[in-house]
Simulated scan of single mutants.
Amino acid sequence: MSAGTHLKIGIIGAMHLECDFLRQQLKETTHKQYLDIKITLGSWSGHAVCLLESGIGKVNATLAAEWLAREFKPDLVINTGSAGGIKLGTHVGDFVFADKVCHHDVDVSPIGFEFGELPGLPVYYAVKDRWLKKLDQVATQLQDMHHIGTIATGESFIYRESQVAQIKQRFADVVACEMEAAAVAQVCYLHDIDFLILRNLSDVAGEEAQTSFNQYIEQAGRKSTELVLGLISQIN
């Protein structure tokens, strides 16, 4: 990537409160719709940006990522929004960045596969080191507290201690869980598109997670927007 290169950057967020502030910041915007997915085309810092508000869950995230791959053809896909912290020492308002993501609710182990593994696909989808380093650098400059590790995806809101314990037992170095990231990563892996997963913690998985999520989801969306736009601004 040479100096002055303008990229096409796709951004996927699940919920209105995770996307609305970012949508308002983009320049030269136009809007369209695919199924129930709200699409905003715009720009930031000289780069073409396409923001998709996908809806919650893996199927919605897959539809959004596939639309991006086919119609927008991005150089980089960023999946952003909120997550629940799992790692000891994470707090509401912290960021988590994936070095790899996995499906914590996939289990075909009775026929010889690992937890999280689908036949013909890896257990973990790895983020390219150069993008993770850039994200880490920008977050450090912005003085955003952040943690790097595995982000685990499943179709359930994780709030019981027993759920947390099981995920940590099955997958290494899990920092957070949520409901879309591995689906986005899997589509990007299959299309050979670079991706980043960054989430702000709206809750820390445990018995109080539901209350915390409802209180902090808007804050998580705003903080994620600031970091995403800061990152795009520093991509040459």
Rank of each mutant, 00 (worst) to 15 (best):
M1P: 07
G4D: 02
K8D: 04
G10P: 01
I11E: 07
G13P: 00
H16Q: 10
C19I: 12
D20Y: 10
F21L: 11
L22N: 12
Q24R: 07
Q24K: 05
K27F: 08
E28K: 10
T29H: 03
H31K: 10
K32M: 08
K32Y: 06
L35N: 08
K38P: 00
I39N: 01
I39G: 02
H47F: 09
H47N: 03
V49N: 04
V49M: 00
E53R: 09
S54F: 05
S54I: 08
G57Q: 10
K58F: 10
V59Y: 00
A64N: 03
A65K: 06
R70P: 00
K73G: 03
P74G: 08
D75I: 02
A83I: 04
G84D: 09
G85T: 12
G85W: 05
G89P: 13
T90M: 07
T90A: 05
D94L: 05
F97L: 13
A98T: 13
C102T: 15
H104E: 05
D105G: 11
S109E: 06
F115Q: 09
E117V: 07
L118G: 01
P122M: 09
Y125D: 10
Y125K: 10
A126G: 04
K134C: 11
A139G: 13
Q141P: 01
L142P: 06
D144A: 13
M145R: 15
H147I: 12
H147W: 15
H147N: 12
I151W: 08
G154A: 12
E155D: 15
E161L: 13
E161Q: 15
V164N: 08
K168T: 13
A176R: 12
A183E: 01
V184R: 04
V187W: 02
V187R: 00
C188N: 05
L190G: 00
H191V: 00
I193L: 06
F195A: 05
L196N: 01
I197N: 03
N200I: 04
S202Y: 01
V204N: 09
G206W: 11
E207N: 14
A209R: 15
S212I: 09
S212K: 13
Y216I: 04
I217E: 14
G221K: 10
K223C: 11
L227C: 06
L229N: 07
G230C: 03
G230N: 06
L231P: 02
